[in-house]
Design a protein around this nucleic acid. Structure first.
Ligand code: MN
Ligand code: MN
Ligand code: ZN
Ligand code: ZN
Lengths: 141, 141
DNA sequence: AAAGCAAATGAAAACGATTATCAATTTCAA
DNA sequence: TTGAAATTGATAATCGTTTTCATTTGCTTT
């Protein structure tokens, strides 16, 4: 990771190192605010802009992608594994991943038919997760 | 359409009639601003809030859905035909639709496996459209 | 080791789309 | 025709994102 930064000509600062490492060890899809809070626990002098800028950098380096589920909050999705879809719970905002291997072929074909050059996919299923669904049923009876 | 509004207890105003009819005759996915501009050509006294509120109402009535491709602008997608995907050109912001009939079965299955209650799908291919692609190739040579 | 320069930081302000507020107007049922 | 409730239009508030700028820092070159 230090290598990656040096190679591309970016400087290695303590803030950057901390932000990168904490982001990369997150399991879920964090927002700037969420990561900022995590970071502040370890170094309360780091500014919001710095966290924001480094998340952008992380994306530029191809280590993460922005995802936008329509609730106005940008989340950051680590690209550890290949392309995948998201189940997004509109109630608790939880994001669960699923494999899209079975449909990328279809999507490639669609793009090819329209002579469209693919940059990325966004496959989402919006609705209610297991937990929220159970809660809903209890309340509505 | 008058029926639909009356049935649900909404009042019929000249502004509302105009906004609904102009929106419904749009072919592409308009933003509030875009529809506002169209409307103003016909009645320059209509306020932005009114256009915005009526677009929300149109969605509430199930005639359209909000779509959010990540560029910070909410667009409104008529639900004339069933669920469909979008090819989104990151350069010219054009949205082209495509059928997703062949993959809804798969997505239903994914949701079922996770005990997830589907509200809607969002299937997007981001990249460069035919036109912008051609332009790009010209410039880069 | 010191200097010089470009990059990075942090605080604050700017931005921009969306949403809320409120007085005035209008619809519609009684 | 009358009155309650909804709608409108102007304006302000909101809120996440992005920019600005003075200061500090990392890193390369002497
Ligand atoms: Mn993910
Ligand atoms: Mn569409
Ligand atoms: Zn949930
Ligand atoms: Zn294009």
């Amino acid at each position: 990771m230090r290598e990656l930064l040096k190679n591309k000509g970016f400087k290695l600062t303590p803030q950057r190192e901390l932000i990168f490492s904490i982001f990369l060890e997150q399991r879920d899809h964090v927002s700037v605010d969420e990561l900022y809070d995590e970071i502040r626990k370890l170094d309360s002098s780091i500014g919001y802009s710095t966290v924001w800028r480094n998340l952008k950098l992380i994306c530029k380096l191809g280590l993460a992608r922005e995802i936008n589920v329509g609730d106005g909050i940008t989340r950051y999705d680590q690209v550890t594994h290949g392309p995948h879809g998201h189940l997004f719970c509109v109630k608790c905002k939880k994001l669960v991943e699923f494999s899209v291997d079975k449909i990328v072929g279809f999507l490639d074909q669609v793009a090819e038919d329209k002579n469209f050059q693919i940059e990325s996919f966004k496959i989402e299923i919006q609705g209610l997760c297991d937990d929220c669904r159970a809660l809903n049923e209890k309340t509505s009876v």
